[in-house]
Nucleic acid binder design. Structure first.
Lengths: 334, 334
DNA sequence: CATAGATTTTGAAACGATTCATTCACGGGT
DNA sequence: ACCCGTGAATGAATCGTTTCAAAATCTATG
């Protein structure tokens, strides 16, 4: 069926060892021979068998990336960053989508573990990291993405959501707002809780300012619209003049509700709005929305970095935490 | 380093062959022995080495899915359909993103070919299918997704864009509109050209109706807004009363421009709007947008089906073409 | 021209699972 | 007591690569 080194070797009149050397250490082979072997490879259409190579080498030339939602641009960008960094190293990245399901995640991890991938970058679906500990115990480096390692001794790359929440709130205060609303939920999602905490602490630093939590059942457009409708009268009465949304979908929903109310709210005059994540839709909303941006590609490339660290030399696990950044648009200033 | 069948066999007091049988054909092994071997596996934390298995078996238990844009919900859903169907077969799916770049695609295909995946599902980036022909020549089934095979003898799964365009236009005509605008471009994208052609032919069947093409440089929100602004006066003058957008991003941009014009256009009263793809944002637009939906998960599962056909028994390549479906919302009827 | 040293090339062993022809064990029938 | 059949278990051969000690070849030098 397939063409193997053996055929190539025969065709080029050399030994299999030499073919392998041409493939992996051409500088140790006489240029003339390299030429001859390469010709044979081309002629026969030889493609090395990854399984055999991997079996011999013990570890594979690829990394696994398991994300919660492959449709989320956040993860798309993380993936891009990871792939680019991995390519520098001659590694490839297999991406898998757990879709927030623990079983799907489990299935993918099984495959990757059997495949003996060189490392796993994962944004875990549940709270149980024991499976990951197992994988690491089998010698495969694991790096948590967008989640701090906490007690567990994993390397991790994450973004400081407390700082992000503070950034958003402080910007609203700095632009003259005094009574903020934080929209987000459910609070059991750590990211949401952290962002709220950050916003709260920024507000409490200013005795003239207040903040109030408006719970959301999910982080969606429609939920944003629902909450937005409830906010309209409060804004009209001057009891809310700034809104921090826990993500951009909520923010967009909120904006729609405000702008399309029977008696529309003006933005940024009557109220300032800050979203979170800086998705593409935030920039092209009716009134472009100020948003907190996470260094997405950087997260991906750093994650690969940490996997590599763990791989060669069992370095100490490291936890990298990036600071988010504010992208100011017309929803808060003109 | 790793635990292999050998250790498991030793620990359970059986031969390696028996361990393998427990893994693959437990019904041929005495229940008592199965038990003993399973205990040993659990105790030692044995994980089969996929590379070794694959080397011996010749082909891998996984499929590759290469998409143009992993952020596009279309492909996310295709992937889900493919994964589910593959899981039924005990196969896993590795997803890779070519990001519309021929080199990225090339890199991924190299890896997959070396990995000897069981099949490749791909939405190719360029027009050159020779690399894919090569892969197939090496015994790996290839199925084109969202692109017809044309001359080439590949299996393919696609959706009839001509029918989709016709569906959109006819719906506008059926709801009383007479003068349509088709917004989309560039026309070298086959999908766009087909949709336009379908819309045109539907219109030409009705002598009282007209259709006019409004070119777009890209299929984005902002471009939609730009074209939308140009459409406002035409609608006001009654020279356009129905719009077919080549995708939902354009449609959303157009809607924004119309609703936020100095003298806003009413929808659906003054104009009807139909988008294409039925992305989530279409349903939650300010005025929810009627859209043409493609059977996305079905496309994925069918693609896997076709790969399997090609794999066992070298069946004739098949081309499956699905009909799209119209999802009616408030942008065309109240 | 002999030889040490450097450069190339060789080919067998190893990686870990599956396969399959062969051997083993155990009853039942005569 | 013997033979046969059936179900269970064995283990050597195999897949395609990489590695590395050893062999072969070449180069420079005395």
């Amino acid at each position: 069926m397939g063409v193997s080194v053996k055929e190539v070797a025969a065709h080029a009149g050399v030994s299999v060892g030499t073919v392998s050397n041409v493939l992996n250490r051409p500088e140790h082979v006489k240029p003339e021979t390299v030429e001859r072997v390469r010709d044979a490879i081309r002629l026969l259409g030889y493609v090395p068998n990854g399984a055999a190579r991997q079996l011999r080498e013990g570890r594979s030339r690829s990394l696994a990336l398991v994300v919660l939602d492959s449709g989320n641009p956040f993860f798309t960008d993380v993936a891009r960053g990871a792939e680019d960094r991995a390519a520098d190293e001659g590694l490839s990245v297999f991406m898998a989508n757990s879709d927030d399901s623990v079983e799907r995640e489990e299935r993918h991890l099984d495959v990757f573990e059997q495949q003996r991938v060189g490392g796993v970058l994962i944004s875990p679906a549940g709270d149980d990291l024991s499976r990951l500990a197992q994988i690491r115990a089998h010698g495969i480096p694991v790096v948590l993405v967008d989640r701090e390692a906490g007690e567990s001794a994993f390397s991790s790359v994450s973004v400081d959501d407390v700082a992000g929440g503070a950034l958003a709130a402080r910007h609203l205060l700095d632009t003259g707002r005094r009574h903020l609303a934080f929209v987000g939920g459910p609070l059991r999602i750590r990211q949401v809780a952290d962002r709220f905490q950050g916003a709260s602490s920024a507000v409490s630093a200013d005795p003239t300012a207040t903040i109030r939590l408006f719970g959301a059942d999910e982080m969606s457009l429609d939920e944003g619209r629902r909450v937005g409708e409830a906010l309209v009268p409060l804004i009209k009465e001057g009891r809310v003049d700034g809104i921090v949304a826990a993500n951009d979908l909520l923010a967009i929903g909120i904006q729609r509700a405000l702008l399309f109310a029977a008696d529309p709210v003006r933005m940024p005059e009557d109220v300032g709005l800050v979203g979170y994540d800086d998705i593409a839709f935030a920039a092209s909303a009716v009134v472009p929305i100020t948003s907190v941006r996470q260094p997405r590609e950087l997260i991906g490339s750093t994650a690969v970095e940490l996997v590599l660290e763990q791989a060669d030399g069992a370095a100490e696990p490291r936890r990298v935490v990036y600071k988010p950044e504010l992208v100011v648009r017309e929803s808060t200033v003109r």
